[in-house]
Design a protein around this nucleic acid. Structure first.
Lengths: 253, 253
DNA sequence: ATATTCAAAATTTTCGAAAGTTTCGAAAAT
DNA sequence: ATTTTCGAAACTTTCGAAAATTTTGAATAT
C-alpha cells in the first residue's frame, strides 16, 4: 500500500539483502504508522505550521487516537527532524529558516548526485520502466502555483517524490538512500511554501533530467539535478515572503 | 549531563542558531530519554546482540519501566537504524553485516571529511582547547583488545567518540553533523566487535590526526581520517570471525 | 509600577490493564 | 509421513486514567 517504488523483477537485487539502514516507509503498524504518516504529511504541507505547538488534546481529536500512540508518532517525527521536544513541555513543529534550507540543500546536492550516479550504473529495464511511468504521471500535472487548488498541489507533491525516488531506485547504498530520502522530505516543506506563493511557473526541468538518466549520461544527469536543487532554493528565497535568515513568526492553527 | 561537546565561549556561534536538524543528544526527558540512552548503549556494545528479539516482558524488567515508555524508546532506535520492527511482531536489534559496515563507512568518509574541513576553517581557540583536552583523555587509554576488561572498553569508546566529536565541533552545517553523528554511532557497533576480537593493537593514528587538525592542514587531516575509517573496516573484516557478507546467526541473550 | 508568591488550571508523562495478533503445538485429515 | 485445522499461550498494541510537571493569573509585597 505505502510502497512507492516497484522493485525490478529480474535478478539483480543484491543491494536489497541484509541491510541495516533505518526503516523508511515500511512498518505498516496499523494505527501508529497511520497516524505517523498523516502527521508527517500535515507537517510537510504546513497544515501544522512551523513552530506550532502540538498539544495532545488537539491532536487526539484531529487524529482520533490515544496519547500513547501520538507520543510514539511524535517521537518518530523528532528523529526525522520534523518536530522538536523539550523536557516536560511537549512537542512542536520544527522551525524553518532560509539558513536551514540552504544547509540541507547543500547536503542534498551530494546525496542526490552520488545516489543517482550509482543508480544509473546499476540501472535495469524495470528501473527505466518505472522512470518512464512516474515521469508520465508527473508531466500530466503542471507544477502548481498560488491559485491551484490544494488537492492538485498535494497530488503533484506525491508524483514529484515518486519521480525522484524512481531515478535513484537502483542505487546500491542503503544508507545513502535513507539519508537522501530524509532530506528530500525536509525539502518538501520548503517546496510547499514555494508553491503557495509561486508567481512564476518554472520550465520543465524534469524532462531533461529523465532523458539524461535514461541515456545513462552520469555527468549530465548529476549536473541537471544539482542545478535543479539550487534553482529551487533560489526560487524559495525570492518568492516566499517571510523566508529570511531569521524567522521569528509564531502563528496559531 | 549528556552534553559531550563544550561550545566555544567567544563570539563565533552563528552556525548554532535557528537550526532545524533533528535533536541528537538533547531532550532530557527524564525516564524516556534515560531508557533510550541505556538501550542505545546496550545495542552499541552488543549487550543486546544483533538480530536479538526484544520482548517487552524482558525489557520491562531490565530497564524497570512500562511498555509505553519502552515503546517510545524503541521507536527512536528504529529511526536511528539500531532496531527494526514489523507489523504486529515486535522489535528486534538491527542486524549487522560486512556489507552494511562497508556501505556506512563509505558514506562516513564523505561526511567526516566534509565536516572536518569546514570545522577547521571555522576553528576557534575553544575548539582547539577541547581537541587537546579530549585527545589527552583518549591517549591515557591504549586502544583495548580482547583481554581488557569491559569497563575499559566502554570508557575508551566514550573518549574515542568525544575526541572525534571535538574535531568537527565548529562545523557550520547542522545537517551534516547530525548524519555524521548517526553514522558514527552505527560504526561503534562494529568497533566494539573488533575490540572484542582484536589481536593486534593499532598504532596511534589519533595523534597524527590531532596534529594535522591543529595545524589547520585540511588536506592532510582529511586524508588521515579517510585512511583511519578504511583501516578500521579492514581490521574488522579480517579479525571479527563471523563478519562475512551474509550473517545468518541468531543468538540468544 | 514592578516583582514575588502561591495555588488552581492546563498539560505532559507514566503506568497497568484490556483488546487484539501472532505463534506454537497437539489433534485430525490427507 | 505430511499437511491442515484449531484452540490455548505468548506477546504486542492500544487505551484511559493516575501521577507529575509546567503554566497561568490573581493576590501580596517591594
Amino acid at each position: 500500500m505505502g510502497k512507492i517504488l516497484t522493485m525490478p523483477f529480474d535478478g539483480s537485487m543484491e543491494g536489497a539483502t541484509a541491510t541495516t539502514a533505518p526503516q523508511d516507509v515500511s512498518r505498516e503498524d496499523a494505527a501508529t504508522f497511520d497516524v505517523l504518516r498523516k502527521m508527517r504529511e500535515d507537517i510537510l504541507c504546513c497544515v501544522l505550521k512551523p513552530d506550532q505547538r502540538l498539544r495532545f488534546g488537539e491532536l487526539r481529536q484531529r487524529y482520533g487516537t490515544s496519547v500513547g500512540t501520538l507520543r510514539e508518532a511524535l517521537s518518530h517525527l523528532v528523529s526525522e527532524g520534523l518536530a522538536r521536544t523539550e523536557a516536560g513541555r511537549g512537542f512542536q513543529v520544527a522551525p524553518i529558516s532560509l539558513a536551514d534550507f540552504l544547509d540541507l540543500s547543500e547536503l542534498r546536492v551530494y546525496l542526490e548526485t552520488s545516489t543517482l550516479a550509482d543508480a544509473i550504473r546499476h540501472g535495469t529495464d524495470a528501473w527505466e520502466a518505472e522512470i518512464v511511468s512516474s515521469y508520465f504521471l508527473l508531466a500530466k500535472l503542471a507544477a502548481p502555483r498560488q491559485d491551484d487548488p490544494v488537492s492538485v498541489k498535494r497530488e503533484w507533491g506525491k508524483r514529484h517524490k515518486r519521480f525522484h525516488d524512481s531515478l535513484v531506485a537502483t542505487c546500491t547504498s542503503p544508507w545513502s538512500l535513507h539519508f537522501r530520502s530524509e532530506l528530500f522530505d525536509q525539502a518538501r516543506r520548503y517546496h510547499w511554501l514555494t508553491m503557495i506563493h509561486a508567481r512564476s511557473r518554472r520550465r520543465n526541468e524534469h524532462l531533461d533530467l529523465r532523458d539524461a538518466v535514461l541515456a545513462r549520461d552520469v555527468d549530465l544527469a548529476c549536473g541537471l539535478i544539482e542545478k535543479h536543487i539550487r534553482t529551487t532554493v533560489q526560487q524559495a528565497a525570492s518568492e516566499v515572503p517571510g523566508l529570511t535568515l531569521e524567522m521569528a513568526k509564531r502563528k496559531k492553527a
